[in-house]
Nucleic acid binder design. Structure first.
Length: 334
DNA sequence: AATAATGCCAACCGCGCGAAT
DNA sequence: GATTCGCGCGGTTGGCATTAT
């Protein structure tokens, strides 16, 4: 037969917040054993605690461990978390290994309560790290309320782009081009998403250049972007696949060579190392995309000089915050 | 001042994987 | 080989603190 049962299902073990005496007992027990826990299962009894071993482990790893760094997250840590999340997703424990003194629980909480909201308010999807379509941007002045969740279909994205472009005949041809493009590439979900993004980006580009006589190059740029990279990603994500693969390889080899933020003094160097790792990858080759895409891109562009001004939601005031302004400009400058 | 709404985070829950039996 | 558990993980919750009305 297998092992003996765990204490966690015992109704008599205490749950809920830890008291000072319990903390003291746990810390002293671990210190008596030279900082080595051994078996968490047997620890509560040995330490004189009426707790489940699992509860002891959580209390120690998330709160009592002596190397835990308390206090607010620095800008460097925040940037690193964003970048790591882009590469690794919700793998909080892996992310935590890159930030010395921070626990997975702490990072997870910080992400959910701070960073996620900031990204949303900036118009960035915190899950995909891609720019949200205009329809899903959060409106400033809404007392901080989030927009209702919504899913924008490719067709809706195109309609949105069309509406944003106004009713001029010349723009309809652009939208028709988008439609053709979409029809050609809807066999791949990821590229559909890219088409959605491009449609929204087109709308944003239109807004940005509403007083310019040279919108056509911008549109061409959007087309090229889709054809050659399929996604418009923030700079910090452009080489994420390589970064993620490297991280996986690291885990497989159980080699902990990843940069760790040890102090503000050498944090810049650590970030530089990450930059180097991220910049090692290359964009997907254009030939991996259907020929129809290339054909669409090669069509002559119409002059869109007389476009109607575009009504788009305003981004929130975070754009004027130095830290977030830096991220916005570096990732989404057109 | 009272109440409601929201923010925050420590702790819990349940699951998957690998190890022990 | 089958069974059972320890451990670690990500998701969720409960309750206190703070802010808004």
């Amino acid at each position: 037969m297998g092992r003996s049962p765990c204490c966690c299902h015992d109704a008599n073990v205490k749950k809920g917040p830890w008291g000072e005496e319990e903390d003291k007992a746990l810390v002293e027990h671990i210190q008596r054993h030279g900082g080595h826990v051994g078996s968490w299962r047997s620890l509560p009894k040995a330490a004189g605690l009426n707790r489940c071993g699992k509860s002891c482990r959580l209390r120690w790893t998330n709160y009592l461990r002596p190397d835990i760094k308390r206090g607010n997250f620095s800008d460097d840590e925040e940037r690193l978390i964003i970048r790591l999340h882009a590469a690794l997703g919700n793998r909080w424990s892996t992310i935590a290994t890159h930030l010395e003194g921070r626990t997975d629980n702490e990072i997870k909480n910080y992400w959910n309560t701070h960073i996620k909201k900031k990204l949303l308010r900036m118009g960035i999807d915190p899950v995909t790290h891609q720019r949200l379509p205009p329809d899903l941007l959060l409106l400033d002045g809404g007392a901080g309320h989030l927009a209702p969740p919504a899913v924008l279909s490719p067709e809706a994205a195109l309609l949105s782009a069309a509406a944003s472009l106004g009713s001029l005949d010349t723009t309809l041809r652009q939208v028709q081009l988008l439609q053709n493009l979409l029809n050609a590439i809807t066999s791949t979900d990821g590229v559909v998403a890219a088409a959605c993004l491009m449609a929204s980006n087109l709308a944003a580009t239109t807004n940005a250049t509403k007083n310019s006589s040279s919108i056509a190059p911008n549109f061409q740029e959007q087309m090229n972007m889709l054809a050659h990279a399929s996604y418009q990603l923030p700079d910090y994500l452009r080489d994420v696949p390589s970064f993620a693969e490297q991280d996986m390889a690291q885990q497989l080899n159980t080699i902990t060579t990843a940069p760790v933020l040890r102090s503000s003094a050498d944090s810049a160097e650590s970030n530089q190392q990450i930059d180097q790792r991220c910049s090692a990858a290359e964009l997907a080759p254009a030939e991996t995309y259907p020929q129809e895409v290339a054909a669409a891109v090669d069509r002559p562009m119409q002059d869109l000089a007389n476009l109607e001004p575009l009504e788009l939601p305003n981004l929130c005031s975070l754009e004027f915050d130095p830290f977030w302004k830096d991220i916005l400009e570096s990732n989404f400058s057109s």
